[in-house]
Structure formats: C-alpha cells, structure tokens
C-alpha cells in the first residue's frame, strides 16, 4: 500500500471482542505504512478505543460514526480507503452506505460467528476479508496480513 494517503476504519457494534484488537492492529499497520488513519464508531466503541489506547500510540484521530457519514455526504471529508468492520446486518448496512457516498476503495472486514452469512449479503464493490473469529483475533489478523502485505 502507498504512503501519504488517508484511511478510515469504520467500527461496527463493539460487542465482538476481536474488533477492538484488530482495529488497533490495523491502525498501527497503516500508520507505519504512511497512512493518515481515522477511526469512526459509536460512542461506546470510541470509549473502548480511548481506554485501550489512552496515549494515542495507535489511533490519533477518531470520529463519531454518524457525524463521519454526514461529513462525507456534505463533501467536507473523504478517504482513499475504508475498512468497514462488521459482524451483523447493521454493520453491512453502514458499509453499503459508505460504499455509495464515498470514493474510498472499500474493504469489508467481516468476523463473528455468522461471518460467512454476513459476507454473502454484501452486494456492493468491496474486497472481503472474512474470518469466523470471535475471541481469537489471529485468524482475522492473518487474513488482513494477506490482503494488505
């Protein structure tokens, strides 16, 4: 991946444990590759993030998810790539919205017990990174490393 670009990591509901670990891991990876990384999520997901990374070693910029969507629609911001995290229909729906409103290259990061079922519902253009991971982040980390060397 090239440096000097912007990336959005869009978190879904934070109830599945692997999400937070992978968001921190991917943010670190993209940051080292020169990406300007922003993480968007619900109020609860962002609180989890701030508690997990209090000194902002891995994540420097955060945004409330609906504000992020509003700002993209209003053309105040946009990103070169977007990693949409999802384990449910609602997460897929947010990702479909992002695909429609943003010019970002889309990556759908799909995890949880129903990962394969959720992946099948995706009809928008996106590179799918799928792993049936709930507590153990390694299968999802390995898939991410394969997709983004």
């Amino acid at each position: 991946m090239d440096g000097n670009k912007s990336a959005l990591l869009m978190m879904g509901c934070p109830e599945v444990p692997v999400q937070m670990g992978i968001v921190l891991y991917l943010s670190n990876k993209l940051g080292k590759a020169g990406y300007d990384v922003t993480v968007a999520g619900t109020d609860a997901a962002l609180k989890l993030l701030k508690v997990s990374d209090p000194d902002e070693h891995y994540v420097k910029k955060t945004m409330e998810i609906d504000q992020c969507i509003a700002d993209i629609v209003e053309k105040k911001i946009d990103f070169d790539c977007c990693f949409a995290f999802m384990h449910s229909d609602a997460g897929m729906t947010y990702a479909a919205t992002m695909s429609a409103i943003s010019k970002a290259k889309m990556y759908a990061v799909i995890f949880g017990n129903n990962a394969e079922d959720v992946a099948e519902t995706i009809e928008f253009p996106a590179e799918k990174i799928v792993a049936k991971a709930v507590h153990n982040p390694i299968p999802l980390k390995n898939k991410i490393d394969r997709a983004i060397p």
């Binding site: 609906d66 969507i69 509003a70 993209i72 629609v73 897929m92 729906t93 947010y94 479909a96 919205t97 429609a100 409103i101 009809e123 928008f124």
Partner: peptide, 17 residues
C-alpha cells in the same frame, strides 16, 4: 433515495440502495 439523503434537518439515511 440514495444513502445519505437528508430528512428532518440532520438525519442522513443509512441503508443499502
């Protein structure tokens, strides 16, 4: 409508188009 259509002043609709 497409995703992002605004209703009631500040709600941008989320959805699969």
């Amino acid at each position: 409508v497409e995703p992002g259509y605004k209703i009631f002043k500040d709600y941008y609709i989320i959805g699969v188009p």
